[in-house]
Amino acid sequence: MCPEPGLISAWVDGEVPSPWKERIAAHVASCPECAARVARYRRLSGLLADAAPIDEEAIVSRIEASLGGSLDGRPGASLSPSPAGAAVALGPSREGPDDSRTGHPRFWGRNIPLPLPVAIAAAAIFLFFAGVAATTFIRPAKPDIQTLAASEIKPSDSSQAANMEALVHYLESQNAQVNLTIQLPSGTTFDSSGKPFVMKATDANYAPFSQTDTSSTGSEP
């Protein structure tokens, strides 16, 4: 019985794990229909790859230059998850995807081998850049997550401002894990123009909350 076409597609992409990968390979070898489908997908990949190649390296160098590239002698940051992987991934590469990154063979590999020194230079440049990028704005995630939902504010209640300040002070003084939930009003409060009155949560860029890139805002109808 033939595998589903979707599975064949995934297999062509090398995304099917063993042992099914080998089983499909065996099936494709002996089934003309599936073999034809595989050939079709590979041919499509070939067409995509062949279409109008560009001088990626030249463009990349121009971008680097205009990004203020005095990428000189700054030591590549020793961070972990494979800065080299990221560098190779984002930097210029040969026509056709990079074998070593994905770790599985490319069936339609039109890998035009890049001269080794150029490849090394390109990788090195991006390693520097990744290092710069990493030291600039990688911060290890801290365990405390603060979530703010909308809070209810009545226009006439001026003491709310004081409460918000106290809240902010409290949060600032906390470094440990804080889970903060503010209930949305169960009823609705309307201001004079007829819009329900909700308050936007604090901007996530405000320092004490900057550990995660989330910000929630009150909803408007």
Binding site: P81, S82, A86, A133
Partner: peptide
């Protein structure tokens, strides 16, 4: 691509890992 890098630098988003940034 250029603009995207600029945005990355200017926003100073604190990514947890290099992969996240990528």
């Amino acid at each position: 691509v250029h603009e995207s890098f600029i945005r990355l630098i200017e926003k100073r988003i604190p990514f947890a890992t290099l992969d996240d940034a990528k």
